[in-house]
Nucleic acid binder design. Sequence first.
DNA 1: GCGACAG
DNA 2: ATCTTGTCGC
Length: 233
Amino acid sequence: MEAGKSAAARRPAAAPAPEWPTDPEQARALQRRLAASVVREDRLGPVRRVGGLDVHYAPRAGLAFAAAVALDAERLELEASALACAPLVFPYVPGLLSFREAPAALRALALLDPPPDLLLVDGQGLAHPRRLGVASHIGLLADLPTIGVAKSRLCGSFAEPPRSAGSWTLLREGEEVIGAVVRTRAGARPLFVSIGHRVSLATAVAWTLRLCRGYRLPEPTRLADRLSRCHAP
DNA sequence: GCGACAG
DNA sequence: ATCTTGTCGC
């Protein structure tokens, strides 16, 4: 043992405490401020480990359960996982998901050792009304390259991508490109992929497809989802 | 005013 | 997300 050197001690969590809104208007104001800091280009090093993050809820217990996983980017095999829970301090409001998920998610992420070089988050990134979905918000708070991988649309319009796996179309809002609609599995409903933080859209789509192993969800998100399910009551 | 609306 | 069994379709 190395006394005093737990994973959490070596890598403190980005605590949501300092400025955590308690009502929707404060939250939207904070999003508008933070959105300017999101980096939409590739600013990531070599990706040896890819992470996945997902959160499940136990509303009756007033808790959120988060699972974070790290996979070998080459073999896509599980290398590490972490679980954490946190009190639910914010209601679900479309567009404000991160204020509900981040407390538990950041705890799980801080416990994940070794940390990932790139993180896939279950939810939108830039494809958000104020361009600060949960993937972007967590990317900023944890200072990690992130990709938003959502199972359904929050905003924007798109053309249905062809039915074959690997095909995709752009997700737009007005003239602005905010993400991609990606067919990760033939015939299955597409995923909504967007920039989270420090990753370009092209890189986000490429990684998402590369991380799929015959299922609709890419492995990091799929495993995190399965793990967080097991531990929710 | 009437829908839409990540998880 | 969660509440929940069998069942319609490729």
